[in-house]
Amino acid sequence: MNQMLILLVEDNPDDVELTIRGFKKNNFSNEIVIARDGQEALDFLYGTGDFEGRDSTRQPTLVLLDINLPRIGGLEVLRRMRADDRTRRVPVVLLTSSKEDSDIKAGYDLGANSYVRKPVDFVQFTEAVRQLNLYWLLLNEPVPSIG
C-alpha cells in the first residue's frame, strides 16, 4: 500500500501551519501537499501548470478543501473534481469558517463527503482534524488508484 497522501487546499498560511502542527501532534506521518488556491489544487490534481508531469493517476487519499479561496473557489474545485473521472471518488472534506447554510448545502450538493467548521478554539480544530483523519484515512478504504 502506498503512503497516504493528503491535499490541503488553504490560502491562510496561519491555518496551514496550525493544521500541519495539528497533524504532527497527532503523529500522522502522511505526506501532506499544500495548495494555496483553487488553481494550484487543480494543477496538482491533474498534473498541469507548476505540477506539469506529475503522475495524475496517483490521487490524494483525502482532500481538505477551504471554500473561500483566491482565483478559483473551493466549490468550483469540488465541482471540477466530481466532473473528472480521475477525482470523482476522492473523499473531500470542506473546511469552512462560517456556518453559512448556503455554503454547506452547495458543498453537499456538489458531492462533498463532509465538512469541518474551523473553530476559533484551536484545540477543537485539532480534534476535528484528528477525527477526520482517523475516519477517512484509517477506517475508510482508500479509493483504488486508477491505472
Binding site: 469558517s97 474551523k118 476559533v120
Partner: peptide, 8 residues
C-alpha cells in the same frame, strides 16, 4: 481567521 491564528 485571525482569531484562530491568535488562539492557535
Amino acid at each position: 481567521a485571525p482569531l484562530r491564528a491568535i488562539d492557535g
